[in-house]
Simulated scan of single mutants.
Amino acid sequence: MARVSQEHLDARRRQILDGAAVCFARNGFHATSMQDVLKEVDLSAGAVYRYFGGKDELIAAIVNEVLASIRDVFEEAARQTPPPPPDVLVGWAMERVLGMGGGGRGKGGLAWEGEGGFPRLMVQVWTETMRNEELSAVMRDGFAKVRATWTKIVEGYQEAGMMRADVPADHVARTLIATAQGFAAQQALFGPMPVEVIQDGLRALMSVEPPR
């Protein structure tokens, strides 16, 4: 019996993950059954269960890849010295993150169907963590790593004299992350919008001065 190459095994696992991500982004985690995934990837149950024990394992694998892709984007941004202003940096990062959807393929390898697929999938992930403690732990760990990266970016602003240094860098990092998360949530709930929207908003907020 011929041995199956590692390349073939990796490609088959990729096929299953991509198909599951398409299903989850389209219909949500709970409305998607393993039969839906089998139909999407056009494989037998035995072929899929060789790689994943069930839907929860598929969800966990997708969440880990999504978080890794997002972290890679922000770590790449953090390597710029000095970092671009927040409006430029957040806009650039959002373009990269949102570019994982629309039938495209993220840095981690996942593909999502339809415009706005990635934001919809992210909202599904956030909802799922409310009931799944294991996924919640994965999300907390992923958030901590992204927050640490953004804290370094803010410290770069402060060291370059681009931002006031009397506010804890972690507080600013959390606010920037919340802004990006909120923008992604709006995309999922209300439809796509250009990244220039969040860039313009940040520029306006950055220009606020105390009343004279």
Rank of each mutant, 00 (worst) to 15 (best):
A20F: 00
A21F: 00
V22T: 08
A25V: 03
R26M: 03
G28S: 06
F29L: 06
T32I: 02
S33T: 15
S33Q: 05
S33K: 05
M34K: 02
M34E: 06
Q35T: 13
Q35H: 09
D36C: 08
D36W: 00
D36I: 03
K39S: 14
V41N: 03
A45E: 15
G46A: 13
G46T: 10
V48L: 06
Y49I: 03
Y49K: 11
Y51Q: 07
K55M: 06
D56L: 07
E57V: 07
A60V: 04
A61P: 02
A61C: 07
A61F: 00
I62N: 00
E65L: 15
V66A: 07
V66W: 00
V66Y: 02
L67W: 04
I70G: 07
I70S: 08
I70H: 10
I70N: 11
R71A: 12
F74R: 11
F74V: 15
E75N: 10
A77S: 13
A77I: 08
A77E: 15
A78W: 06
A78Q: 11
A78T: 07
T81F: 09
P82L: 05
P83Q: 09
D87N: 10
D87E: 13
V88E: 15
L89H: 03
V90D: 02
W92V: 09
A93H: 05
M94F: 04
R96K: 15
V97A: 06
G99Y: 04
G103F: 10
R105P: 01
R105A: 08
G106W: 00
K107E: 13
K107W: 09
A111F: 04
A111Q: 14
G116Y: 01
G117T: 03
F118H: 03
P119E: 07
R120I: 04
L121P: 00
V123Y: 05
V123P: 02
V123C: 13
W126E: 12
E133F: 11
E133P: 11
L135Q: 09
L135F: 02
S136K: 11
S136C: 11
V138F: 06
M139E: 10
R140V: 10
G142F: 04
F143R: 13
A144C: 06
A144Q: 12
A144M: 09
R147P: 03
A148Y: 05
T149Y: 05
T151D: 02
